[in-house]
Nucleic acid binder design. Structure first.
Lengths: 341, 341
DNA sequence: CTGAAAGCGCTAACAA
DNA sequence: TTGTTAGCGCTTTCAG
């Protein structure tokens, strides 16, 4: 069963040459119908499976794609990976997942590792620490297929899949404003990330639209994206200790949102009475929180699927891609109690 | 950078034969120190990386391991995968993850797929639907390395990593009993799974120890492991509609626990006043729930690591393994409000 | 229509 | 100490 048969076994059994067998298996023209039938039937019978490694060696394709994300144990990414797998599997690719834990060094090492494994393409979501994307640029310019998703590199012109972060943030902020909050803090991931900037811009735009001023003391960056709990705790504490304390916090990432909730809880700050909250998160259980969380949710599964489709298309494209596209999907605002007044 | 050099390039550049280069690279004895130095330096300079595909073809090892789990987007499994990756990566293996979605057919297909990819070994956690483990048995008997973790196959004698499910369930149940509950329901995954049976046994043992009788109407199986929301809802509703309604529910799996919480919430049943809850889950945010959840937590990350270590050891072992071991790790009972009286 | 042979990158047995 | 060669499984010229 796992000691698989080779084309040679078939050839021997049928008294044919390996090339004939190969041709039969690959439905070549130049082959007699009865020979073909013979081979096919025998192959079927012994449950022949071509050795993908040999194929890879031959045509220099590994039929695997590398994935770079900050971590698997994250609602957004585990859902996205689910989407990635679903497409890759059907298209005959396998997926090698690597985690950066938000570190630039690990990210580089992972990319190196994936390249040395001869992956056919890369699906990447940048780490919070990453500012230098020169290696991706280099690869991309050499014609190596790369698709960014979610945390994309602004200045590399390749396929990308992102959520409408501006609008997602705008809507969430406007919800807070319409509820009656004016002092709204902004707790966010590293500013290196384009998504952080987009979300901030959406946030700010909503404020501006409603003529609400923003106190920059309410803007808190967590450069490690919530990997370091203390960092988030400190940020939240700082916010709470401000003389001009905010009435609500808009949080722009999955981990940050839950970390912030814990910190508030530990400090005995009630949500939403003490402070209201809206956050980006793909948690399936945000509705079970105390209080139920108002969230901005991204279509993670679909984003993973889309990115994978684009990547495989790029990999399999005969001619170099000319037009790179950015597909943008809508976020969903799910209103629950944490944003109530 | 990604168009990597081959041993041939080095040989040509240095006017050596490929075998000499190979020997130098592999630190063989039979090679002149200066030749070796020359090769090594040049290889370093051009950043030579051996082609893993060629190596695989040569020694019939793919340096990859296949993982079979029900789904990635599950707290327990995403954490376990994190552990798997951490070990595999360091040992030079890559990991191919497949999801069964609790279906036996998909599980079989995944195993087939992984075998056709020539993985060197399998890390598996059975699907809820699986009762027939003949194909694993066959592979195992043929000497193919398989390590089961969490949802293990009872009657295959290979390496296994499990949590002390009996004790975990026992402790949780005893907590409920000591809190003053006597009517305790049991909401669990398919009885196909050994973990379900172990957890039930632990549960029942605690009841027996305290001379508490168990009404079998309080025992509810969700054969799809929480993949089908309606199934869980129905089970919970049934429990609530019982004349002899239980005062507490002990839940034995991650997804079931959260699903049960939602259902209770949707039906306006307060926890723990209306009904108390303790559940197995590896959610990092169970403390943020309303009410904060009392949970039994498994050391998922370590379990993933242990299983991977055992698998790689088996793969790399020269002689066939004689003694298969089952490593058992302790669960952790985290007491919060959902189990209070 | 079918077979022989080369080659993908690498290692190892065998020669020198 | 180094080179030559065969072979891992497969496809693909090139002959026949």
């Amino acid at each position: 069963m796992f000691e698989s048969y080779t084309i040679k076994d078939i050839a021997k059994a049928l008294n044919l040459s390996t090339s004939t067998v190969s041709r039969a298996l690959n439905g070549s023209y130049e082959i007699g119908p009865e020979t073909k039938k013979l081979v096919l039937e025998y192959a079927e019978k012994i449950n022949y499976r071509p050795n993908p490694i040999a194929l890879s060696l031959k045509d220099q394709k590994s039929h695997s794609i590398g994935v770079v994300v900050c971590e698997v144990a994250n609602n957004y990414f585990s859902q996205a990976i689910n989407g990635i797998e679903s497409i890759a599997y059907n298209r005959g690719y396998h997926v090698i997942i690597t985690q950066t834990h938000e570190s630039f060094d690990r990210e580089s090492a992972n990319v190196q590792h994936l390249l040395s494994r001869h992956v056919d393409g890369l699906l990447v979501s940048l780490s919070a620490e990453t500012t230098d994307v020169a290696h991706y640029k280099y690869l991309h310019e050499k014609g190596f297929p790369i698709v960014f998703f979610d945390r994309v590199a602004a200045d590399i012109n390749t396929h990308k899949v992102i959520a409408n972060n501006f609008k997602g943030a705008y809507e969430a902020t406007e919800l807070l404003i319409n509820t009656g909050f004016t002092k709204i803090a902004h707790l966010t991931n590293s500013n290196n990330l384009l998504i952080s900037r987009d979300r901030f811009n959406g946030f700010k735009a909503a404020l501006d639209k409603h003529n609400i001023s923003f106190n920059y003391a309410w803007l808190k960056y967590c450069n490690h994206g919530g990997m370091i709990q203390e960092e988030v705790e400190q940020a939240v504490k700082d916010l709470l200790n401000l003389d001009d304390r905010p009435e609500a916090i808009f949080i722009t990432s999955d981990r940050l949102t839950t970390c912030c909730m814990s910190t508030l809880k530990n400090h005995g700050v009630k949500v939403p009475d003490g402070i209201a909250i809206v956050g980006f998160t793909n948690s399936d259980v945000a509705g079970l929180f105390d209080p139920p969380l108002t969230v901005v949710r991204q279509p993670a599964f679909q984003m993973g699927q889309m990115a994978t489709e684009m990547l495989i298309q790029t990999i399999e494209s005969k001619r170099p891609i000319e037009d790179y596209i950015t597909r943008e999907v809508e976020t969903e605002l799910i209103v629950r109690c944490s944003s109530k007044k």
